[in-house]
């Protein structure tokens, strides 16, 4: 299932949190050889993790991480503007309607549908929060995965060679694409909305709470 968690909420899910940062170390440090820092606990974390980003995480049945990605608003500091301006024609992409998506990571044991489920969750964010685009940083392997999901970004530019190749790309919100990706992941619209509501809404229904003061 999908969970939407701000960084400061991660501590309530220690198993999910720890396995996510370990899988990130595995993917970005070990497999791709990116220059990322891995701490003594084996966690891959960077400065953007300290800015209270919003994570979208696939939680496995045993409470561990199946896949994830990280979002930050482009009105604040972003990886794209801080490090990859040369890949965006020098344009500092900045708008309250555009969020940055980085560190798309899959667990080695992730079922095939997880990447589609994550992208569909991204679509849920765009729909619910009235966003127009995501701008993302991703590795070479992801280009093929995004294509298979039916959610190919428009690649703005790439740097590096081989497994170290990093690209910056754009996704535009499209309700039809969101529904197609959900179908591909085998997740119903209702299920997707329910996961979303569970993360962003409190449990008690509004009417009930208001009746307390009426």
């Amino acid at each position: 299932m999908i969970r939407y968690l701000y960084a400061e909420q991660l501590d309530a899910f220690p198993r999910l949190r720890d396995t996510m940062f370990r899988h990130r170390a595995e993917q970005f440090h070990k497999r791709l050889g990116w220059e990322v820092s891995v701490d003594a606990e084996g966690f891959e974390r960077d400065g953007y993790d300290d800015m209270n980003p919003l994570y979208v995480i696939w939680e496995m049945a045993d409470g561990t991480h199946g896949g994830s990605m990280r979002f930050l608003p482009t009105t604040g500091d972003t990886m794209v503007s801080d490090h990859f301006l040369h890949l965006t024609d020098g344009v500092r992409i900045e708008s309250p309607l555009i969020w940055e998506c980085t560190r798309f990571c899959l667990s080695p044991d992730a079922p095939a549908k997880v990447s589609a489920a994550l992208m569909a969750a991204g679509g849920e964010l765009m729909r619910a929060f009235h966003l127009t685009h995501f701008v993302g940083v991703f590795d070479r392997r992801m280009i093929r995965i995004y294509r298979m999901i039916g959610s190919s970004p428009e690649v703005l530019g790439s740097a590096g060679e081989g497994s170290e190749k990093i690209s910056v790309g754009l996704w535009q919100y499209d309700e039809n694409v969101r529904r197609a990706i959900l179908a591909r992941a085998g997740i119903s619209l209702e299920q997707s909305q329910q996961w979303f509501a569970r993360s962003f809404d409190v449990v008690a229904p509004h009417e009930e709470r208001l009746s307390l003061v009426a």
């Binding site: 009105t75 024609d89 344009v91 500092r92 992409i93 900045e94 708008s95 309250p96 309607l97 555009i98 127009t132 685009h133 701008v135 428009e154 703005l156 754009l170 535009q172």
Partner: peptide, 17 residues
């Protein structure tokens, strides 16, 4: 020499600023 899609994002960025 960019796509229309990319142009839209550059314009959105300029619009915001």
């Amino acid at each position: 020499s960019i796509s229309e899609h990319t142009l839209r994002v550059y314009i959105e960025s300029a619009r915001s600023k």
